[in-house]
Simulated scan of single mutants.
Amino acid sequence: MSKNREEGLVMDIINLQSKIQKRVGGALFVHGIGLSEYFVLNQLYLAPKQKMRRSDLAEQVGLSPSGITRLLNPLEKVGLVEKEPNPRDARVSLVALSAAGKQVYEDAQISFGFASADLFKQFDAKQLSTFSKLLKVLL
C-alpha cells in the first residue's frame, strides 16, 4: 500500500470515528451520557463486583490518570459511580458502579445497540465479520 493510500485510510478511519460519535453519541445523549461515559460505565459493568481500581479503569479506556479523574468527577456528582476505599491498599481508591449507574448503563446499552446496528446496516454478516477481524489486527 502506498503512503498516500495509507494516509487516506487513516483519514477514512478518523471520519468513521466522527460518524460513530455523532450517531451513537447522539443516541446516548437521551440517557445523559456521551460515548466516553458509556465506555467507562461499560468497563465497570463488566468488571468483577462492578468495581475497578482507578488506574486500571484509566488504562482500559485509554485515558491518563488525570483524564479519568476529570471524566469520573461529574459521574460521581450525579451518582452514577462511587468512590470506595481499597481494603488492601489505602493509597489506591476503587471506582464502583452505583445502582443508578447500572440502570443508566443498561438503558443506554439498548440505545447503543440500536445505533450501532443502524450504523452498519448496509453490511451483511460476512462483511461485518471481515471488517471486525481487520480492525482487531490493528487493535
Rank of each mutant, 00 (worst) to 15 (best):
V40I: 15
V24G: 00
L44N: 05
L46Q: 11
L80P: 03
L71N: 02
V61T: 10
R53E: 15
N42C: 09
R23T: 10
N15C: 08
N86A: 05
G34Y: 01
T69L: 13
L97T: 03
L94R: 04
Q127T: 13
L97E: 06
K19P: 03
E106G: 00
L63E: 01
Q17H: 09
Q50I: 02
A90R: 14
N73Y: 05
V137M: 08
Q17G: 15
L57Y: 01
L57R: 03
V30H: 14
Q50L: 04
L71D: 06
S116M: 05
R53K: 15
T69F: 09
Y38G: 13
Q21T: 07
S98Y: 00
L46E: 15
A90D: 12
Q50W: 00
Q50T: 07
A58C: 08
F112C: 13
F39Q: 14
L97F: 01
L46A: 08
V81D: 11
L138R: 00
V40M: 09
K121D: 13
V104Y: 02
Q43M: 15
K102P: 05
Q122K: 04
A58L: 05
P74H: 07
R53T: 04
V40S: 09
D107N: 14
L97W: 03
L139V: 13
R70D: 12
L80T: 08
T130N: 13
L138E: 00
L46V: 03
L28S: 10
N42L: 11
D107W: 09
V95I: 12
F123L: 14
K49W: 04
E76S: 01
L80K: 11
R91P: 06
L97Y: 07
V30M: 11
A100H: 10
F29A: 14
K22Q: 09
V92L: 10
A47I: 01
V81E: 02
K19S: 11
P48K: 12
N86T: 08
M52Q: 07
P87Y: 11
V137I: 14
L75Y: 05
I33T: 11
G32M: 04
V137C: 03
F114C: 01
S18Q: 12
M52W: 01
P48I: 02
M52A: 05
M52I: 01
P74S: 06
A96G: 04
L97K: 01
D107V: 03
S64L: 10
V137E: 10
F120E: 00
Y45Q: 09
F120L: 12
L94Q: 03
K102A: 08
A108N: 06
P85C: 08
K136Y: 10
A96T: 01
V40K: 05
K133G: 15
K133W: 03
S36M: 12
P87C: 05
A47F: 03
I110K: 15
P87M: 11
K121W: 04
E82M: 02
K136E: 10
S93K: 06
P48N: 12
Y38P: 13
T69D: 01
H31T: 01
E37G: 11
A100N: 14
I68K: 02
S36V: 12
G101E: 00
S55H: 10
G101R: 00
Q122S: 14
